[in-house]
């Protein structure tokens, strides 16, 4: 077993573990906003590690570029996806406000609504 294979195995196992933890987080966290944290952060790093593992294991330069592309698009789209889900959930009242210590967005929306009415 050479060094490349060891690096590949380490990356693949670590990536799988992180993806598993992300899934556990999504299932376990109490509300939607907290779940989006689990869906963006460990998931992105997990995917990066999996792609790195594949690149080490396959050792073909053509494929490496495609894997880099996968990671780039994941970095670009994951925050936008989380933002869209969070925003839609927030505006349709899917947020458990009892878990929020402070909520300045609701304060501002409230204030803007009152000003509009007066």
């Amino acid at each position: 077993m050479n060094a490349m294979m060891i690096a590949a195995s380490v990356c693949l196992i670590a990536g799988c573990l992180l993806t598993l933890v992300a899934a556990i987080g999504v299932a376990r966290f109490p509300d939607m906003l907290a779940r989006m944290h689990a869906a963006t952060k460990p998931q992105v790093l997990g995917l990066m590690l999996l792609m790195a593992g594949l690149a080490f294991g396959l050792g073909s330069s053509q494929l490496t570029w495609k894997l880099v592309l996968v990671v780039v698009f994941q970095l670009l789209t994951a925050p936008v996806a989380a933002h869209m889900v969070g925003r839609a959930g927030y505006r349709t009242g899917k947020v458990r406000s009892d878990l929020l210590v402070r909520d300045e967005l609701t304060e501002d929306l409230e204030r803007a609504r009152l000003r509009k009415e007066s």
């Binding site: 992180l18 992300a22 906003l33 907290a34 952060k41 992105v44 878990l99 929020l100 210590v101």
Partner: peptide
């Protein structure tokens, strides 16, 4: 970020309390 979220996800007894800030 991944490590900190992973730790929070695996800490079974604690419920994270978040906040929305401007």
């Amino acid at each position: 970020a991944s490590v900190s979220v992973a730790i929070r996800a695996l800490r079974w007894r604690q419920t994270p309390h978040g906040a929305v800030i401007r």
